[in-house]
């Protein structure tokens, strides 16, 4: 069997320079879209059995266990993150365990491009394309938010205070990358709400 050729959405992009933040593509993440009724105890129990964690019920939150994370997308939808190699089997395991319980687990590892943004000015950079209140307490580590970014739909996950993962649908990956190149330039760096050296 010949080797399979695999390339991520932004495989053709190099790490950019002269940006005010670090920007790179995360290529090795697996993702499973999981639908189910949160109030259905059997559903929640089956999910826990496979994933090892309780699916989060609080909107815009996330839960981790080992190398698996569950991101809340909606009242009946979660995005399960795991190592890429594990995704297909995880989706299959969920489907098998859930059986006749009304649910849907789909391997969507290829559907989105994952961009990692890191650095002090990450929130300000994102604010050039998003009207979320990213400086507020709603965006502490663990927060998840689907959003409108630039002109497209996106998903934001606050990994750490200055580390954000931005998920965009695969076909928009180049557009999102170029938008970040344009808005994260070192020359356009801006600090919001800090001491200013104003004219006196």
């Amino acid at each position: 069997m010949p080797d399979l050729y695999v390339e991520s959405p932004l495989a053709h992009r190099n790490s950019p320079e002269r940006l005010s933040i670090y920007l790179r593509e995360i290529k090795d993440r697996g993702m499973v879209d999981l639908r189910g009724i949160a109030s259905d105890k059997k559903f929640m129990a089956a999910a826990k059995k496979v994933l090892g964690l309780d699916l989060p019920k609080t909107p815009h939150s996330s839960v981790s266990w080992g190398d698996v994370k569950a991101l809340w997308l909606s009242i009946d939808q979660w995005l399960i993150l795991c190592p890429r190699a594990k995704a297909a089997e995880l989706a299959a395991a969920l489907t098998a365990e859930l059986g006749v319980i009304h649910s849907l687990a789909v391997d969507v590892s290829d559907m989105r491009a994952v961009l990692r943004l890191e650095g002090e000015g990450v929130r300000e950079v994102l604010l050039k394309g998003s009207s979320l209140d990213l400086l507020s307490g709603d965006y502490k580590p663990g927060a998840v938010r689907r959003m409108h970014y630039a002109e497209i739909a996106a998903l934001l996950h606050v990994v750490e205070d200055t580390v954000f993962d931005l998920y965009v649908f695969r076909s928009y990956a180049d557009y999102a990358w170029e938008f970040l190149l344009a808005t994260a330039r070192e020359a356009s760096k801006i600090k919001l709400f800090g001491k200013q050296a104003g004219p006196f």
Partner: peptide
């Protein structure tokens, strides 16, 4: 349940 998968494939 309806899950779009246009970009997965």
């Amino acid at each position: 349940f309806v899950t779009p998968v246009t970009e997965q494939w």
